[in-house]
Design a protein around this nucleic acid. Structure first.
Lengths: 346, 346
DNA sequence: TTGTACGCGTTATCAG
DNA sequence: CTGATAACGCGTACAA
């Protein structure tokens, strides 16, 4: 490719280059770029237009940001990028940024406090215009500082009442209740709850609490079965599951999984135990990953409005950027949807 | 929370603030920050340390970037963030950035040429230090310009020989051959190939070509069955699949899916048709999403080293950043791994 | 309608 | 060891 040598290495073209090429001053070019076309003579405008085109000029966002005080960047800090839930939310955020000419800085913390903190510091350094965070909940003091710096922060999925930030999440109580009532309606019981360790995560907590309440009120079971599944440890599910099922002979047991990560492991365990779903055991799970419709002829799910959550969060950031900064923080709770499939139907 | 009013709105603290608080000049603080500690008196160092801590100072990356000519940002342009393949690669890129103090600007193009181009322009404006791109292959002239600007570009998964960029992908021919030979070994045949429309995408093309060759050489079938599955159109799979299976009575038919997106739809169709895998039909697919181990008692897969691909790509960008800029572009082809499960075993 | 000059927050050069 | 001072590329009063 001789092309590679033709123009050796091109120093990035600046506004000054454009100005010179067009025979005008930087100021005039700057005005053109910021759309103040009414202040320009047709002649100047055309010359600038051509120069920009020919030189392939792109305004330097670092310089521009430095001057204007906004970077055009939004930080998205997620706890686990491997979780399909996260990806769908991210899609929403990203699309919404795109339509506003902004970019997403993606940060995956692996549910680790130190990483979360480090990332937030990096994002601060980049002077992000907004932050959307699926937080571990372990950096609250640190996060609070962002409030003083007047940068819009939106919490996602996990509430932290101690923080004065907008929060977008789903109505976990309604969702959990719907799932459980459906199981009970179908004649299932006892029901076991599988969740990741609560660790102060609000969504996990709310779902679990609601499970407890529903079990007590509607099934008269004050001490329902709850299994916490530690992350990334294999085969901690099979034992409890086997145990649960063996104590439930003569009835119609069911399992409820608090998210897709746990559900995946439960499904594996059920398969290994040779269980027939829904004949031997019913199943309902949170989240609606690809495979939920596939396994056991379809698993009944509580589908969260993931994409919409992302869109909503980013819109909120945008509104705050437009001067709504000092309004009180609001809690936006979106409804989840129960999708009934074969796994929970007699 | 009275805290919110205590310090009303804090102007971002600059290096000058630190300098004043520490009773030294900006220069000295700058030295401290860039780790030239050997040039500082213990006294000065301590005072700066304290000032930085107390004020919560974070160097402004925009200013720093403007001055140093590097932004600390890497652009990652992906064709489809919904594809688990993409997410795993992204994880690799992200981890590798993290360990180098860099950040990822994530851009999802939805396989759309215009969006890809727009995004690359935005990334250019941000003066990204590197670009990793899972390209549509439709903006080549445009991409070529990046070569002149001396910014490291790494192509991912999809080769574009016309472009002078490093490329990280898998050995598709070896992988495809392994998958097909395995099916033939197990006594399967005829074999049908399901793929997304080729659209000039090298990975799709290589897999398909290899399929053709293997079929001709080893099975003596010059015109094997190929089905192109258009994206996001429901139930275009069921018809062809049914047709294929009906013409294959008396033999042991199998299907091979060129990626997880297509495979998902094939699985749906197979379920709907009430097929028993592997008894009625064998199956092998590319990619190893969560659900592949679950469905049909496990689907045999060609697992791509996705995470490693991300890591490799980012390492390459890094090397180029460190002055290896003018070395010729290299092609890095990683091996895929055949994981045999129930779906392809007699 | 256009241009001059300054500053955004850093780093680098140079002189002490 | 330390500190002025000049850029980096851009936007914007202010002046013309």
């Amino acid at each position: 490719m001789s092309d590679r040598c033709e123009r050796p290495v091109r120093r990035p073209v600046t506004i000054l280059d454009v100005a010179r090429a067009a025979g005008v001053s930087k100021t005039t070019v700057s005005r053109y770029l910021s759309g103040q076309v009414h202040l320009l003579s047709d002649d100047a405008r055309h010359r600038i237009e051509r120069a920009v085109e020919e030189l392939g000029y792109r305004p330097n966002q670092m310089a521009r940001g430095l001057k204007r005080g906004r970077s055009g960047l939004v930080g998205m800090v997620v706890a686990d990028i491997s979780n399909p839930f996260t990806v769908d939310v991210l899609r929403g955020v990203e699309d919404e940024c795109k339509s506003r000419g902004m970019n997403v800085l993606l940060c995956n913390t692996n549910n680790d406090q130190a990483q979360e903190r480090e990332y937030i510091e990096m994002l601060q350094a980049h002077r992000i215009d907004g932050l959307i965070i699926h937080t571990t909940g372990l950096n609250n003091a640190f996060l609070r500082e962002l409030a003083h710096q007047d940068i819009p922060v939106v919490l996602l999925d996990r509430k932290v009442p101690a923080l004065p930030f907008d929060t977008v999440c789903v109505d976990n109580r309604q969702a959990t209740r719907a799932a459980l009532m459906h199981l009970l309606d179908q004649g299932f019981g006892p029901i076991a709850w599988f969740t990741e360790p609560i660790d102060g995560v609000s969504s996990r907590k709310e779902r679990l609490e609601t499970f407890r309440k529903v079990m007590e009120h509607h099934a008269g079971i004050p001490e329902p079965l709850i299994y916490e599944v530690p992350a990334r440890m294999p085969s901690t599910v099979e034992g409890p599951l086997k145990n649960f099922l063996s104590t439930a002979t003569g009835s119609r047991p069911a399992v409820c999984c608090a998210n897709a990560v746990v559900a995946l492991r439960v499904v594996h365990a059920l398969s290994k135990l040779g269980m027939d779903v829904p004949r031997d055991v019913g199943m309902v799970m949170f989240d609606n990953p690809d495979w939920a419709a596939l396994v056991f002829g379809g698993i009944t799910v509580v589908e969260q409005p993931t994409y919409a959550m992302g869109v909503t969060a980013m819109r909120r950031v945008w509104e705050r950027m437009q001067g709504q900064a000092r309004l009180p923080a609001s809690l936006i709770e979106l409804p989840a949807r129960l999708i009934i499939r074969r796994s929970s139907v007699r």
